[in-house]
Nucleic acid binder design. Structure first.
Length: 584
RNA sequence: GCCCGCAUAGCUCAGGGGAUAGAGCGUCUGCCUCCGGAGCAGAAGGCCGUAGGUUCGAUUCCUACUGCGGGCACCA
């Protein structure tokens, strides 16, 4: 505390140095604030009803260091209903909050913010909690009871996965992990478009390549087609002796199997694993399409016109009705989409999330309409997220060509350039609704302009400190063997220590918010802040004893803080599917 | 034409109605006899696209406009 703060009228309670204070997370602080408001209302020092208290009391990390550990705008929210100005409300709450054990100081600032500083002991207790909870720290039950299907990538099995797929591979998988961390039950699903004319063109292309014929104009021309053809010939040399249509189908099916297996292999190396691979063919073969039609007919939104069967999606905000069965009797792709949605719901999912590329934004209204036509509330049962394009830059030029696939860039091209961790991290780091330009020169560099290295480096640096501590005999190597009784959190009084603890305390809220908003990029941005917070702490606060110096309680307390920071970085990177190396 | 998204520092981008709008890069200045310098501290750099509206308060929400990207099917 500085003299300036004293002069500004800061009121400060007695310091609490004793060990054993309750920890004070922002959630707990919010509860204390609510209690203070309640008691003020009961004491009639605030002219309000209990019902006027907001459902959620906002407790935030102030941007400015001078504003204490936590800030709340509760006085600004209540002042109107209380018929007074915000500062007056704050003045009522200030002394009540000061009585709370663990709150060290409460300052009224600006238009009526309450800036709260915690005692070192109470704030430092958090390190003990984090170490004890381990991997569970940050997990919550905010989405408990929800069963969510998240469908992403869903590429045709007619070629390698490209950059757009790759964005979803990283973001979709991270989103699934984040939703699980918030307590939801999640299935990751990949819809295989293994039906229709694209498959036939694919088969014909591979067949032509195998026979040494020119590939059809409207076929697939990537180098991988020839590779597939050669593999098939090795597997089954007799295939060329088949005749006509039979041979084309045989090539198509063999190529399909190989290409799908390749997609699965590539995704697995990319740390993205699906619970369900759902084939469009099985959708038709299992009768799911008929069941879907039946469901929609029951709801009364199906009609015949011009020899075709239509779904009246205009009943629910679509631009035009959509054909399900064409006049020639063929099913449309849209028919599969409707059946697939109905099928997902019948498999018990409360919510179906679709991650789609920007070129599919026209699907949003019609798929929401499908949900409505099936009798569901689209607001609850379906959510469509649109992701913008990804481009790569190298040497100041856009990368357009791929060795494997001609003029599309593949997932493997990106991984070859920068590795799995950097690829995943950089794809997840940005909100999906803005176009993304990846600079490969930056991502493959080992400098701090490469965010994934910055975060991983912080983790490795902490791991190193703890290794060294174990070697010096300060503390056991495994945190599970640490003696909690020897941790005195009240010693963590440095500004940097308080800052770092405050950041760590925010982690559960960051995860819950990322889950609620379906925005995993918040995790990475947060981790970068934690890394900065750690580096600042490390720079200012010596953790280990020098040379032959005696081991102090402060050394031990700082190691607890290190372990807590390491745990949070580890947990956060885990949600992104990015490794947390012990050494780099 | 209609629909969706975007517009914030020289560049790439964060910012869920709150305080003096942030980070990295780039430019400039400092910090290693000591735990990982892949780090830290500091400086410079902004009518938050334009104009209205809602609000005690708008970069944030709404409307219009301008500019950029994407999309319109009895294709898959």
């Amino acid at each position: 505390m500085t003299d300036t703060e004293e002069n500004n009228g800061l009121i400060r309670a007695n310091r609490h140095h004793s060990v054993g204070l309750p920890s004070m997370t922002p959630q707990e602080l919010a509860q204390k604030i609510e209690l203070a408001v309640r008691s003020a209302i009961l004491a009639e020092t605030l002219a309000l009803e209990i019902a006027d208290i907001p459902a959620e009391i906002v407790v935030e990390r102030p941007k400015n260091l001078d504003h204490g550990d936590w800030a709340t705008n509760i006085a600004l929210q209540l002042s109107k209903k209380a018929g007074t100005n915000p500062r007056a409300v704050a003045e009522v709450l200030q002394p009540l909050l000061l009585k709370v054990l663990g709150i060290d100081a409460v300052k009224i600032a600006g238009p009526g913010f309450l800036n709260i500083s915690l005692s070192a002991a109470s704030q430092g207790e958090l390190a003990r909690d984090i170490v004890a909870k381990g991997l569970a720290f940050g997990r919550s039950d905010t989405l408990a009871g929800q069963t969510i299907n998240i469908e992403f990538i869903s590429a045709n099995p007619t070629g390698p996965l490209h950059l757009g797929h790759t964005r979803w591979a990283a973001v979709g998988d991270a989103m699934a992990r984040v939703l699980e961390a918030a307590g939801a039950k999640v299935a990751r699903e990949f819809y295989i478009n293994d039906r229709g004319v694209q498959m036939d063109k694919f088969g014909a292309s591979v067949e032509a390549a195998a026979l040494g014929n020119p590939i059809p104009e409207d076929g697939y021309h990537g180098a991988y087609i020839l590779t597939l053809a050669q593999e098939i010939l090795v597997q089954d040399p007799e295939i060329v002796n088949l005749a006509g249509e039979t041979r084309t189908v045989a090539f198509r099916e063999a190529a399909y199997k190989l290409q799908l297996a390749d997609q699965q292999r590539v995704l697995s190396t990319f740390n993205t694993n699906f619970d369900v691979w759902y084939s469009e063919r099985t959708l038709h073969e299992s009768g799911a399409v008929d069941r879907g039609f039946t469901k929609l007919r029951e709801q009364g939104h199906v009609y015949q016109e011009g020899g075709a069967t239509w779904l009246r999606t205009t009943d629910f905000d679509d631009d035009k009705d959509r054909v399900m069965i064409k006049a020639d009797g063929e099913l449309t792709y849209f028919a599969s989409d409707t059946a697939y949605y109905v099928d997902k719901r019948s498999r018990g999912f409360d919510l179906c999330i679709y991650l789609l590329g920007a070129d599919h934004h026209g699907y949003v209204n019609r798929l929401r309409a499908v949900a409505a036509c099936a009798g569901d509330d689209p607001e609850k049962s379906i959510q469509l997220l649109i992701g913008q394009l990804v481009k790569m830059m190298k040497g100041g030029q856009e990368v357009r060509l791929s060795k494997r696939a001609g003029n599309i860039i593949t997932l493997e091209d990106l991984v070859d350039e920068v590795g799995v961790d950097a690829a995943r991290y950089s794809l997840i780091r940005y909100p999906v609704d803005s176009p993304l330009l990846l600079d490969l020169d930056l991502l493959s560099s080992n400098t701090n302009d490469n965010p994934v290295h910055y975060v991983q480096y912080a983790h490795a640096r902490i791991a190193s400190v703890i290794r060294n501590a174990a070697e010096l005999g300060v503390i056991p190597a495994q945190t599970s063997n640490w003696d909690s009784a020897k941790f005195n959190p009240s010693l963590l009084t440095d500004v940097r220590e308080g800052q770092l603890l405050g950041l760590l305390a925010d982690y559960p809220r960051v995860v819950a918010t990322a889950a609620e908003l379906r925005e995993p990029h918040r995790i990475s941005r947060y981790l970068e802040e934690v890394a900065t917070g750690y580096h600042r702490f490390y720079d200012a606060c010596r953790v280990l004893p020098h040379g032959d110096d005696e081991i102090t309680e402060l050394n031990v307390a700082r190691l607890w803080l290190c372990a807590a920071a390491r745990q949070v970085i580890f947990n956060g990177l885990d949600l992104l599917g990015v490794s947390a190396p012990e050494r780099m």
